[in-house]
C-alpha cells in the first residue's frame, strides 16, 4: 500500500507517495527524479548508490524511503554549487578518476561524506574507506589520487 513520505534531498522537500518496499535509491531515482544515484548491485556491495544521510555515507539500496523521513539526504546532484563543481568533482575530473562514470556518484558521495567527518585521514585510512566501493574501469589509482587532491583543497 502506498504511503505519503516526505524526503528532504539536497535542501529541497519532496513529497512522494510510495510503497514501504521502495528503497531510498529507487525513490530518489523514480519519485524525486534524481537519477544520479545509480544501482549497481542492489545488495549493498558495490556502493554505486552511496548517498549521505545526515552526513553519513550509506547504501541507498539498503534503506527504505519510508525510513528516511525528516533526515537530511544529499546526493550527487547537490554537490556542485551551480556552475562551480565541488572540489571532489573537480579533482576526479583533473585526475581522470572516472571512465564510464557509473560508479562515480557513489565514490564522490563516499569520499565527501568521509572527509567531512574526518578531514585528516591518512593514506591508509583513505584506502580503507575507498575499499567500500567497487569501480570496474579505473583500477582505483586515479580515484585515490583525486581524493587526495580534493582532501587538500577541502581542508
Amino acid at each position: 500500500m502506498k504511503t505519503p513520505v516526505k524526503l528532504r534531498v539536497n535542501g529541497q522537500a519532496h513529497e512522494i507517495f510510495v510503497e514501504p518496499r521502495k528503497t531510498l535509491a529507487d525513490a530518489l531515482r523514480d519519485d524525486c527524479g534524481l537519477t544520479g544515484t545509480h544501482l549497481g548491485c542492489e545488495h549493498g556491495v558495490c556502493g554505486a548508490c552511496t548517498v549521505l544521510l545526515d552526513g553519513d555515507p550509506v547504501r541507498a539500496c539498503l534503506m527504505f524511503a519510508i525510513q528516511c523521513q525528516d533526515m537530511e539526504i544529499r546526493t550527487v546532484e547537490g554537490l556542485a554549487d551551480g556552475e562551480e563543481l565541488h572540489p571532489m568533482q573537480r579533482a576526479f575530473w583533473e585526475k581522470h578518476g572516472l571512465q564510464c562514470g557509473f560508479c562515480t556518484p557513489g565514490f564522490l558521495m563516499l569520499a565527501v561524506g568521509a572527509l567531512e567527518r574526518k578531514p585528516d585521514m591518512d593514506e591508509e585510512e583513505l584506502k580503507e574507506m575507498l575499499s567500500s566501493n567497487l569501480c570496474r574501469c579505473t583500477g582505483y589509482q586515479n580515484i585515490l589520487a583525486a581524493v587526495r587532491a580534493a582532501q587538500a583543497e577541502m581542508q
Partner: peptide
C-alpha cells in the same frame, strides 16, 4: 564490513 555499513 565497510564504513557505510558500519554507520548504519
Amino acid at each position: 564490513g565497510h564504513m557505510p555499513i558500519r554507520v548504519r
